[in-house]
């Protein structure tokens, strides 16, 4: 029996420690994805709460074809989008979603990421850059590159095809790169 299967069985038996384990194993990922999409701490906490309540209520219906973590990511993603919709903050994808983006700012950043992150300003620029992306692109980047989830699971979480998932991730990477390059260009 896998770790997931054991935990699911304990959750279904309402084992008191099982939800604690589910929470501890997943809260950071759930909160991080919610915050990344919503860009607001209160909304991210609300989303995380809704996600674990939904998991508690529906664990009997969970079909263990997917991983438990993937299922939680999917609930989180949907809850976060619902909050965006409610607050009329939906930011539809641009029509030219599949258009390639040619980088215009081509400066050498010179430093390695680990060195860059010693500077508080770089963290701010990164947060600022991701906040400018449409939510769907933010989600694609967060799932694929921050959470490092395989592409088929990213697509499953977002309920989109792998092709669209790859296209969104690619676009998100290039847009983020461009925003950060603008900062480095001004700094050099």
């Amino acid at each position: 029996m896998t770790d997931d299967e054991t935990l699911i069985e304990r959750l279904r038996k309402k084992d008191e420690t099982a939800f604690k384990d589910l929470f501890e194993l997943n809260i950071d990922h759930v909160y991080s994805l919610a915050y990344g999409i919503l860009q607001n701490e209160d909304d991210a906490e609300e989303t995380a709460q809704q996600t674990f309540i939904a998991a508690y209520k529906t664990i009997d219906r969970f079909e263990p074809k997917a991983k438990l973590s993937t299922w939680l990511y999917r609930i989180t993603y949907n809850n976060a989008l619902n909050i965006l919709n409610k607050r009329r903050q939906t930011d539809p994808l641009p029509d030219n979603e599949n258009e390639s983006i040619m980088p215009s700012s081509l400066v050498d950043w010179r430093f390695e990421p680990e060195q860059m992150l010693l500077e508080e300003e770089i963290h701010k620029q990164l947060e600022k850059a991701i906040s400018t992306l449409p939510p769907a692109l933010r989600a694609a980047f967060l799932l694929r590159d921050v959470e490092q989830i395989p592409i088929h699971e990213c697509a499953d979480i977002q309920n989109i095809s792998e092709t669209l998932c790859k296209a969104r991730t690619h676009r998100a990477r290039l847009l983020l790169r461009e925003r950060l390059s603008e900062y480095f260009s001004e700094r050099n």
């Binding site: 950071d28 909160y31 990344g36 081509l106 991701i130």
Partner: peptide, 25 residues
């Protein structure tokens, strides 16, 4: 040269995101 910079800076973007955008509660 330009495409090499685009590759290098895109890789760095991904690494920066992975290292800095995870936000634990």
């Amino acid at each position: 040269h330009n495409c090499s910079i685009a590759l290098d800076t895109t890789k760095k973007t991904i690494t920066l995101g992975r290292l800095a955008l995870a936000k634990p509660l």
